[in-house]
């Protein structure tokens, strides 16, 4: 598929996968991506049964796990086959299911990790305030200013989730991978977090892949909805729940 912008320039996909087999063990592949692309500014929601490989898929895109076979290109960095480890610093933000926060450090420390990742130089934050400013902006946006200097392990589950989101937003990545980042949140906070992330996506033309179990929310958020079923990643047509019901949890 070729996509063009208003001035007829070809837009390159942020992720492009051809016949990529996802899994840890070649004898037990989890599922296959026959032809999958994500374009700048797109919100992709992924759903499917527990244990079917959604997290493994996100880790593969993040370059933490190598796919079993196929051609995967993420953020235009690739070597034929599998290796996408040369993605540039700070371009990819990942919110793991267990959040991946440094529990014994402060909220500010965690968010600064993301903010510092934006800059090529490790020493940049020592000489400039912009990393700190972007950390403060992300923290304020998610309504966690009052916990800034609190230790993460002393926060509630929902507060931690907001910290993990703030870390990724402070990073200003081109691609966000969010694994169930809205769970454990009450309805009001869910809307705040969701709006912050989606605003960032629409303003920065970044893309996001979200793993989400709540079908209604998934439909509401997504530009395209995917389901993993029968060993394949399938796009769910709008207003058709049947395939989700076959593969999803509900």
């Amino acid at each position: 598929m070729i996509i063009e912008d208003e001035s007829n320039k070809i837009i390159l996909p942020i992720i492009s996968a051809k016949n990529v087999v996802i899994g840890y063990d070649s004898k037990k592949p989890l599922f296959e991506l026959e032809d999958f692309s994500v374009y700048p500014g797109e919100i992709i929601v992924l759903t499917g049964k527990s244990g079917i490989g959604k997290t493994t898929f996100l880790k593969t895109v993040a370059g933490l796990i190598k796919p079993i076979s196929g051609h995967l290109q993420v953020l235009n960095y690739t070597k034929l086959g599998t290796d996408i480890s040369n993605i540039k610093r700070g371009e990819l933000g990942y919110i793991p299911q267990n959040l991946g926060l440094v529990r014994h450090a402060t909220v500010m420390h965690n968010v600064m990790l993301g903010a510092n990742a934006r800059y090529k130089s490790f020493w940049h934050p020592f000489f400039s305030n912009d990393a700190k400013e972007s950390a403060f902006t992300a923290i304020e946006g998610l309504g966690i200013s009052e916990y800034k200097y609190k230790i993460v392990r002393k926060l509630s589950g929902g507060e931690r989730r907001r910290v993990a989101t703030a870390r990724t937003l402070a990073q200003k990545p081109k691609l966000i991978l969010a694994d169930e980042f809205l769970s454990e949140l009450d309805e009001t906070t869910k809307s705040v977090v969701q709006n912050q992330v989606l605003n960032y996506i629409s303003n920065s033309k970044a893309s996001i892949i979200i793993v989400e179990h709540d079908l209604e929310r998934a439909k509401q958020m997504s530009d395209r909805l995917f389901v993993i079923s029968d060993g394949k990643l399938l796009e769910l047509p709008p207003d058709n729940d049947s395939m989700f019901l076959k593969g999803g949890d509900k």
């Binding site: 610093r89 933000g93 299911q97 991946g100």
Partner: peptide, 12 residues
């Protein structure tokens, strides 16, 4: 998990 998040950010 924190190492995964850091690896995804490509921290050194």
């Amino acid at each position: 998990d924190p190492l995964d998040a850091a690896d995804a950010m490509r921290l050194n």
